[in-house]
């Protein structure tokens, strides 16, 4: 193997990254939480200040590593480091935040290369209590950014929602891989060149 297999969970503070990793990791997630000193962004008592980590053992014996990125924008310098070589990114958006569409733009911009390669999915949380912006608004904002990635409602606390997002993400990766195969075996760069 030439590198680690990893999936990222990105999103603003409180969007559910740690919860999503907990939903599917076979080990108790290793978190680096600290008392939240930034109540302007989120009123959580504790938040992830570096990253979360979980893992899943594949039938091949390899480990699929799950990383949760720190949510605060000031840690944005870490996002491309984590994204390098990632299989894909699950971007979690909290619809109860003041400007979820701005959050979307921030994270799409950060993971643009993976988005263009079809290795990003967007899950929107708290849609039942905060139905606006609608999925239509998300799809249109993404189209305006010239990005086409799946966007769906998702509750990170539900195992089935998290797995459902990963299922679609894998389908996208597979579809892109199949296409790149036809086009001459350039898939490795197409799917994995995660450096932005």
């Amino acid at each position: 193997m030439s590198g680690e297999l990893k999936l990222l969970f990105a999103g603003a503070m409180g969007a559910g990254k740690t919860t999503a990793i907990r939903a599917i990791s076979e080990i108790a997630p290793i978190t680096t939480e600290a008392t939240n000193g930034d109540f302007t962004e989120c009123d959580k008592e504790e938040t992830t200040v570096a990253m979360d980590y979980g893992e899943i053992t594949l039938p091949t014996g390899e480990k699929l590593r799950l990383y949760g990125t720190p949510g605060q924008a000031r840690f944005g310098f870490m996002w491309p480091i984590l994204a390098a070589g990632a299989l894909g990114v699950v971007i979690l958006i909290d619809n109860s935040r003041p400007d979820p569409l701005a959050d979307l733009e921030l994270y799409i911009d950060a993971f643009r290369a993976l988005a263009d390669a079809g290795a990003v999915i967007v899950g929107v949380g708290h849609m039942e209590s905060c139905p606006r912006p609608s999925l239509e608004a998300y799809a249109e904002r993404l189209a305006a950014l010239d990005v086409v990635v799946p966007v769906m409602p998702a509750d990170a606390r539900r195992h089935s929602d998290v797995v459902g997002m990963l299922e679609i993400l894998l389908q996208q990766i597979e579809a892109t891989w199949a296409y790149d195969e036809v086009m001459g075996g350039v898939s490795a760069c197409g799917l994995m060149g995660a450096n932005s």
Binding site: S2, M183, A188, C189, G190, L191, M192, G193
Partner: peptide, 16 residues
């Protein structure tokens, strides 16, 4: 799609 194929220099962890 050609643009996507040639972006980035990191070959990633997986042989195609």
């Amino acid at each position: 799609r050609g643009e996507a194929n040639t972006r980035g220099a990191d070959p990633g962890p997986v042989d195609a």
